[in-house]
Design a protein around this nucleic acid. Sequence first.
RNA 1: GGGGGCGUAGCUCAGUUGGCAGAGUAGCGGACUUUUAAUCCGUAGGUCGAAGGUUCGAGCCCUUCCGCCCUCACCA
Length: 505
Amino acid sequence: MSELFHPDRLQRLNDLRQAGVDPYPPRSPENREWAQPLVEAADARSGETVTICGRILGRRGYGKLAFLDLHDQSGKIQACAQKNKLPEAEFALLKKINLGDFVAIRGELGRTKMGEATVFAESLQLLSKSLAEPPEKWHGLSDVELRARMRYVDLFSNAEIRQRFQRRSAVLAAMRRVMEAEGYLEVDTPVLHPIYGGANARPFRTHHNTLDMPLYLRIAPELYLKRLLVGGLERVYEFARVFRNEGISVRHNPEFTMLEFYGAYGDYRSMAALTESLVVAAAEAAGCRQEDGSLSTEFRGSSYDLTPPFPKLKYRELFVEHAGFEPEDRDRVANRCRELSLEVELDSEYGYWKAVNRLFEEEVESKLTGPVFVMDYPAAISPLAKPCPEHPGWAERFEFFLGGMELANAFSELNDPHLQMENFQRQVQDKDPEMPNEVDWDYVRALAYGLPPAGGCGIGIDRLVMVLLGVDNIREVLLFPLLRPEVGMVEEDSATDSAEAASAP
RNA sequence: GGGGGCGUAGCUCAGUUGGCAGAGUAGCGGACUUUUAAUCCGUAGGUCGAAGGUUCGAGCCCUUCCGCCCUCACCA
């Protein structure tokens, strides 16, 4: 890797300081306006003096005149700096401005001969000197890894990426509005868990020093949110960052965001209805409303119609339809697992149904493009869900599929403390590394005080955003996906030397 | 982990059969008062991912390694 600070820019930094210009002034103009609204109001407000602040990412210079492209969060606007309109020192400053520098410009709003909305500068002030070269102006950064590693560069050099994350933000805001409208309270529960639970996943381990206590980064917020229901907070939700110590792929990042919500006196059917509302609101916010009035998205080369209601199909019926036999047919399940060379252990009830579920994934899930709710899962693999009253062995649980991915998982919450305790104890016996290694007795105690009947649901926000924005890779909807550390980025000596050189008088 | 592809200037990329390391852009110096990737003149910029090998000679061929991408497998 090369030097952190570009030598030519360091030279300019020193030149500026010697000319008495602070390259990092403490304050910016107070009455700054955003670029995009000014562009739109260029005629209505023509002749008004306005102030803009932003980063210079384009420059077309002449001897006594220069056009600058000033970018800010809203977009960009052109500024025109002319020698006869600027104080001498500020026109001189123009020569020391590099692409990437932040400036404030005050001047009249108007249009150029070519009709472009432009601020004709009467004042030019440096707000922050950039010491690193921005990427190529036409292509920006395109190396996928570099873009993720230096998202700060990706964002300012690629408008499309900036827009993508603005849309992601709009999706979250829309979902919050739905939760708010339904009377759900946004809450924050611990990320550091003494016992990991609420999902099947390998956890990250950590340690608290003064308590000398092992801790896990949460794999799910579920058990804490349901404690809140015991406490009388009847409708709660959390946009929860969760952590799973598993593989990385186009659909998996070790940390990701789940929206989990729980509603007392509801069940998995009310959760399906709410999930549907959330997905529709998210789709609207993501811009999936098409010109022909339909609500749809393109993802991985397929089109998905998001017009509600979304179909509901039964897990067991799907299994029979695609596998060709019943999930209770032990011989055929075992045979089919062998045919597909699935590594399964069929001796325990849990192992058997886990195998059934593996078959379900193989035979059915790949064909479920969605949007679709898959209803009623095997109880043995749903330890936190309430059993179906009329179908022993099955639980009131659904998963929601869209874009060929599992986007949500919900159940009628198990509120029988005895049953929950037994499920926990069975999990601990199984010694599966993806299962809690001890019973969460505090959670059982909470249930003993009484959990109202409730529905709960978790939605994978990153995956939802992928589908709605038509982005293939989860890394592309995360601002900072986990990456291998960069080696040899900086030689300590040279970085220190440059810094000293820069601050030298 | 298997298969495929890629790694060259800050960035985006060429590089022919193995024969002097290239362009654009960004940078620096200069000219230019209406540009839209401005234009023009000049200039600087390299551990060709790393190591080893073959060769008179390697960015190019071979081996190993590292990293990234795609795909399959794994991962409720």
